[in-house]
């Protein structure tokens, strides 16, 4: 039971962050390597709020949303938009994305070091400790937060005029701008939301594992696994992808580390990575890209023929 709850909480974090990864991918068709560091920024915002303002990390969720959202917005305005306007190709954008990642991660290291020396307390490997039994409050809070965010994001993107315009602008910019939608602003809003969600995910991270400036980067490839599994062009595919990846990692290593295999639990990250590599080679467009109908008809035809 403990394992299932832990898997659920871990999946919530992945779901919240990979929705944003998919959203930014749709806007510029570039994998945002810095998305993991936006999660770390959220975690550090919560830590700073808890230590300096003395509030609980949960109360810092809006702050984390703003901090990571602003970082994402800044990277859009300072890095991706200028390059996109210069007609940069996908590889150039990917190099820029890698650079942004290195800048953010190195800055977080500097921040952690400076805070450690100036406040005389540890800003690396920190945890938000909780007393209590198996069902600790963060599992409940992260699940409720994830559900609320998914529902409100769905309502926003599908039921409000602005949300529909936003989807139109990121999915088909030329058509959207032809009917008067401000594509650039819509992209900026997408980056803000994407960063913000990563920040919210970051608040829950230190409840689970010791967090340092490398935490988000380590999480990034799992987010990619979730996003690709759900289909990089489907925002809500990331929800399914996130839960599949999170559950399969935590439950998978629980099963593999027991008898008969007795594998070291340190192989944990290998599970989502292996899923991702296999997925990219077999069905790179994710679950939403598989033509289920054709697959089913082909299979049934095969059965008929063999029968």
């Amino acid at each position: 039971m403990n394992v299932v709850l832990d898997a659920l909480a871990f999946s919530n974090i992945i779901v919240l962050s990979s929705i944003g990864l998919t959203l930014t991918y749709i806007t510029l068709k570039v994998p945002n390597f810095a998305h993991g560091d936006l999660v770390t920024i959220g975690a550090y915002t919560a830590l700073a709020a808890a230590r300096l303002l003395g509030i609980t990390p949960y109360a810092a969720i809006p702050l984390a949303f703003i901090a990571s959202g602003m970082a994402a917005l800044a990277s859009y305005y300072l890095v991706y938009r200028p390059l996109d306007r210069r007609g940069a190709g996908i590889v150039t954008l990917m190099i820029a994305s890698m650079s942004t990642e290195v800048i953010l991660r190195a800055s977080l290291h500097i921040f952690a070091d400076v805070m450690t020396t100036s406040t005389k307390s540890y800003w690396r490997g920190f945890l938000f400790r909780e007393e209590g039994g198996q069902l600790t409050s963060y599992i409940v809070v992260s699940t409720i937060t994830a559900i609320l965010i998914i529902i409100s994001l769905y309502l926003f993107l599908h039921r409000t005029k602005y949300g529909v315009a936003l989807r139109a602008a990121v999915e088909n910019p030329s058509l959207a701008s032809a009917i008067g939608i401000d594509v650039d602003k819509a992209r900026a809003v997408s980056w803000l939301i994407a960063g913000g969600l990563a920040g919210v995910a970051g608040v829950f991270m230190p409840f689970r594992t010791p967090t340092d400036p490398e935490t988000g980067w380590a999480l990034l490839l799992r987010m990619f696994a979730a996003s690709v599994l759900g289909g990089l062009d489907a925002v809500f595919g990331a929800v399914i992808g996130g839960y599949v990846i999170g559950l399969s990692e935590v439950l998978g290593i629980y099963l593999l580390s027991g008898p008969p295999l007795n594998l070291s639990t340190a192989y944990r990250p290998a599970i989502p990575f292996a899923i991702l590599v296999i997925l990219l080679l077999i069905a790179p467009r994710g679950l939403s890209g598989v033509e289920w109908r054709r697959l089913l008809s082909r299979m049934s035809r095969g059965v008929v023929r063999s029968g």
């Binding site: 994998p31 996908i90 490839l221 990575f273 990219l280 790179p284």
Partner: peptide, 19 residues
């Protein structure tokens, strides 16, 4: 694969080897 998918695949493969 296209460049972006290829990039992710190669990064992940490298991390798999390291793990």
């Amino acid at each position: 694969l296209r460049e972006d998918y290829l990039g992710v695949t190669l990064i992940v493969s490298g991390e798999l080897l390291r793990i």
